[in-house]
Amino acid sequence: MQVINYISNIAMPLILLIILMHGLIEKQKVFDLFLEGASEGIKITLRIFPTLIGLFVAISMLKDSGIIDFITNLLSPGLDLINFPKEIMPLALLRPISGNASIAIATNIMKTFGVDSNLGIIAATLMGATETTIYTIAVYTSSVKITKTRFVLIAGLLADIAGILTSVAVCRFLSNGFS
């Protein structure tokens, strides 16, 4: 467990170090480049701001009206069978469809059950390990005006399911290490 935590902890500083060293070796003005990108970051965040407000409201309404509990309870016999935490199901269903909606619902899960709780960690891992598959396929195929996508959607969703199940399994397995 300690090794895994160590790798997790060193990954971010190490990448920072490599990129900065690379910039210095190429004799670039690294701080100017940094500032350029950072102000770009403000624009990106502001751009998703209205989307997130709309979605956070919708997601917290779904949650507090009780409808999410209703749906997950409907699905729970099947989920119990494969030992899948039903609280994660809404996130798993939305993840391939909308990136921002899944940010909203993942944040909600981390808040409700605790960010360092098992469910919170599963939600975070799932978010990091999967993409908005359906959206990505739409962007890539429509850019070249192709309508026959063959097996891509099935393959992408299979990968997502594998990623989701692995997230749950890995987090359960490592749960002793997180506390």
């Binding site: 935590n5 790798i7 990954a11 960690i121 975070a124 390990a129 992408g156 990968a159 594998a162 987090c171």
Partner: peptide, 19 residues
Amino acid sequence: PTNIIVPVWIATLVAAIVG
């Protein structure tokens, strides 16, 4: 906050291999 990095790697890798 960063202790999810390795679990994310494992899950992503499995997903990519399956894909």
